[in-house]
Amino acid sequence: MPSAFTLLRAWGLMMALTGLSLWAAISDQSIASTLAAMGAGVLKAVLILWAYLNLRRSPSGWKAVFGVFLIAIALIVLGAFWVGKIVK
């Protein structure tokens, strides 16, 4: 089990990432803010898996499964976003 300090640190980081992605989205709608929003989302998902679920201690096969899932989601979302920009 992760220590209370580790959990609090992960929570603080995730709250900061939420604020950052919200600020980036409100301040402009450029490719940078899209990357920031999706990057922050994926990073928060990693922190939930690593700290909250403590999967950093799980076998590497499981890390790969969740890693592939998150990378696939990010690629699909960002890929579709860029295709949309090109088509427009």
Binding site: T18, L22, A25, A37, M38, G41, A45, I48, V77, F81
Partner: peptide
């Protein structure tokens, strides 16, 4: 574990539905 899965889905859903435009 189930509750964290609910968390994990939301942190991905939030940027996709609300932020990326």
């Amino acid at each position: 574990s189930f509750w964290h899965m609910v968390d994990l889905i939301w942190v991905l859903l939030y940027p996709i539905v609300y932020l990326i435009r």
